[in-house]
């Protein structure tokens, strides 16, 4: 196995950092979206459902391109961020946004599965005991959704480690700055003599994925015991 240089180590660290940041940032939004889709009664619910799930079926490159327009100098979000002095495109923050958008439907789905398994009587009981909708959300639905939140986070984190298409468009492939594991593999695979390094990074990917899945199993088993 070839020895990793600082560029490879930073790619591994960056992958972990981007995935983790994307997961943490998405969690409250994912919870809110899952709640609205599970319990909300409002116009435009179907539209929200489609919007949330769209990244699941859209090519990541399309998402990346749309984000590029949105975050670019002429996009409304890009302009706002630029005026605040926060450049986003071609930084690791852009990679976080791309990863979050692509993984979002997976996270929402996992949270919804957990949320919809909550006995509706518990929600009714909490309302009849004097809890308003927000109170009920925070004291009954949230704690009983923990399992779904964990599953959704793990899924998103694992998916994030593999994010490629959207990331390369909005964050580029700058070694040491925005180059994550998949981007580094792409670099090595397309350069002569890069195969051993590409394979080594593949191995790292596999190890990370297996570790995440084992962690998920472990957490699931612990929670079952707590029940």
């Amino acid at each position: 196995m070839p020895a990793f240089s600082s560029a490879e180590y930073s790619a591994i660290l960056l992958s972990l950092k981007v995935s983790l940041a994307a997961t943490v940032v998405s969690l409250p939004f994912g919870f809110l979206a899952a709640y609205l889709l599970s319990y909300g009664r409002f116009r435009g619910k179907l539209a929200l459902d489609v919007l949330v799930n769209l990244p699941l079926t859209l090519p990541p490159v399309v998402i990346g391109y749309l984000l590029l327009i949105l975050l670019g100098r002429h996009g409304w979000l890009g302009r706002t961020l630029a005026s605040l002095g926060v450049p986003v495109l071609f930084t690791w923050k852009a990679a976080v946004i791309a990863t979050a958008v692509v993984g979002f439907p997976l996270m929402v789905r996992a949270i919804r599965v957990g949320m919809e398994a909550i006995d509706p009587r518990l929600i009714q009981a909490s309302r009849a005991l004097g809890a308003g909708p927000l109170d009920c959300l925070l004291t009954v639905i949230l704690p009983l959704s923990i399992r779904g939140l964990v599953a959704g986070s793990v899924l998103m984190f694992a998916r994030g480690l593999g994010e490629f298409g959207a990331t390369i468009i909005v964050a580029g492939n700058i070694p040491g700055v925005t180059q994550t594991i998949p981007l580094a593999i792409y670099d090595y695979a397309s350069s002569p003599g890069g195969d051993p390094m590409a394979l080594a990074l593949c191995l790292v990917s596999i190890v990370l994925s297996v570790a995440v899945l084992l962690l998920h199993e472990q957490l699931g088993r612990r929670m079952t015991r707590l029940d």
Binding site: R121, Q124, A125, R127, A128, L129, G130, A131, G132, D135
Partner: peptide
């Protein structure tokens, strides 16, 4: 329901 002060035993 949270303002009606009606208790329920299911």
């Amino acid at each position: 329901p949270d303002r009606r002060r009606i208790g329920i035993v299911f």
